[in-house]
Amino acid sequence: MTAQQARAPRLAARRLERRRHQRVQVALLGRYMLADRQEYPCQTIDVSPGGALMIAPVRGKIGERVVAYLEHIGRVEGEITRHIPQGFAFSISAAIRKRDKIASQLTWLANRQALGLPEDRRHERIVPRSPMTIIKLESGRELEARIIDVSLSGSAISLEVTRPPLGAAVTVGSTNAKVVRHFQGGIAVEFRLALSPDRLDENIIL
C-alpha cells in the first residue's frame, strides 16, 4: 500500500466531516436560555450541525452552557465559544443522528434560498406539551378543547361539542381568533394577530 493510499481514508473522513459541519448562512428566529435560565430572543447568522453564530441581546460567558430553540431546527444545546459585537457563537453538542438531521434541514434551507422559494410560516406547526385549553364564544359560553397544533397564524383544535360556525369570533385561551374551517371532530382558527415567533415552541400556552 502506498502512502497516498493510506492517507485516502483519512482524507475522505475529513471531507465527510467538513460536509457535516458546513455552515449555511440562514436567518432563523428562536430563543435561547443561559445558565441562569433566563430566556432571550435570537436570530441566527449561520448554522452548521456543529455550531451556530447568532445575534443575541445577552452574550453570556465563554464556555457557558446554552440551550436554544430554533425554527426548522428545534432544540439544540452546547457551549458559547466566542463573542461577536452583536451576539455569540456556540458549539452544538448532539448525537450523530441529530447532527445528520440538522444537516438535512440546512441542506433543504440552502436549496430553498438558492431556488428563491418563498418562506411560508403558515405551514410551520408545533404540537404543544400542554394541549388543553378553553374556547370562549361571543355569547360568553366556554368550551373545553384540545389544541392539535399551532402555527404563527392559527391553530387546529379538537372539540367534542357543537362546533362554532365559520367566521365566528372566538377566544382560544387568551388569544383572539376566528373560525376559518371545520373538520371532523374539530375546527381551525386564524388568529386576529399573528403570534410572535419566539412564542412558537412546544411550551406555548395560548
Results as ranks from 00 to 15, higher is better:
residue 4 Q to N: 06
residue 147 I to V: 08
residue 7 R to Q: 15
residue 160 E to C: 08
residue 65 R to W: 04
residue 109 L to M: 03
residue 80 I to A: 01
residue 140 G to F: 10
residue 1 M to W: 12
residue 169 A to P: 02
residue 131 P to S: 04
residue 36 D to Q: 03
residue 88 F to L: 11
residue 70 L to T: 06
residue 141 R to K: 15
residue 52 A to D: 03
residue 24 V to K: 07
residue 90 F to R: 04
residue 104 S to I: 09
residue 83 H to S: 02
residue 49 P to Q: 08
residue 4 Q to F: 12
residue 129 R to K: 14
residue 130 S to C: 14
residue 100 D to A: 07
residue 60 G to S: 09
residue 124 E to S: 06
residue 33 M to G: 06
residue 36 D to C: 01
residue 109 L to T: 04
residue 107 T to Y: 09
residue 136 K to S: 13
residue 98 K to D: 11
residue 136 K to F: 01
residue 151 S to L: 07
residue 198 D to M: 06
residue 205 I to C: 10
residue 140 G to W: 09
residue 5 Q to M: 14
residue 99 R to K: 13
residue 29 L to R: 15
residue 3 A to M: 12
residue 21 H to M: 12
residue 24 V to L: 04
residue 71 E to D: 11
residue 193 L to V: 14
residue 157 I to A: 03
residue 85 P to W: 11
residue 146 R to Q: 15
residue 93 S to Y: 08
residue 117 L to V: 09
residue 68 A to E: 11
residue 69 Y to A: 00
residue 47 V to S: 03
residue 65 R to F: 04
residue 201 D to R: 03
residue 96 I to D: 12
residue 57 P to F: 08
residue 164 P to Q: 00
residue 108 W to C: 05
residue 30 G to T: 03
residue 202 E to L: 05
residue 45 I to W: 11
residue 109 L to Y: 06
residue 92 I to F: 00
residue 148 I to W: 08
residue 18 R to W: 09
residue 112 R to H: 11
residue 103 A to F: 13
residue 190 E to F: 04
residue 73 I to R: 02
residue 136 K to D: 05
residue 60 G to F: 08
residue 118 P to L: 09
residue 91 S to P: 01
residue 163 R to V: 02
residue 59 R to T: 13
residue 119 E to Q: 13
residue 46 D to W: 07
residue 127 V to E: 05
residue 59 R to D: 08
residue 184 Q to H: 12
residue 130 S to L: 15
residue 52 A to K: 04
residue 183 F to S: 00
residue 173 G to K: 05
residue 150 V to W: 02
residue 67 V to C: 07
residue 76 V to D: 00
residue 7 R to G: 05
residue 64 E to N: 06
residue 155 S to G: 02
residue 136 K to Y: 05
residue 198 D to K: 06
residue 124 E to L: 14
residue 80 I to F: 00
residue 62 I to N: 06
residue 11 L to M: 15
residue 62 I to V: 13
residue 60 G to Q: 12
residue 106 L to E: 02
residue 22 Q to T: 07
residue 16 L to F: 10
residue 79 E to Q: 05
residue 6 A to E: 12
residue 25 Q to K: 13
residue 130 S to K: 15
residue 80 I to T: 02
residue 149 D to L: 12
residue 68 A to Q: 08
residue 63 G to S: 00
residue 43 Q to Y: 03
residue 143 L to W: 09
residue 203 N to G: 07
residue 76 V to E: 00
residue 1 M to N: 12
residue 188 A to R: 01
residue 35 A to L: 11
residue 48 S to A: 07
residue 21 H to V: 03
residue 199 R to I: 08
residue 31 R to S: 10
residue 7 R to V: 10
residue 98 K to H: 10
residue 94 A to I: 05
residue 194 A to V: 07
residue 37 R to W: 08
residue 138 E to D: 14
residue 179 V to L: 01
residue 168 A to P: 02
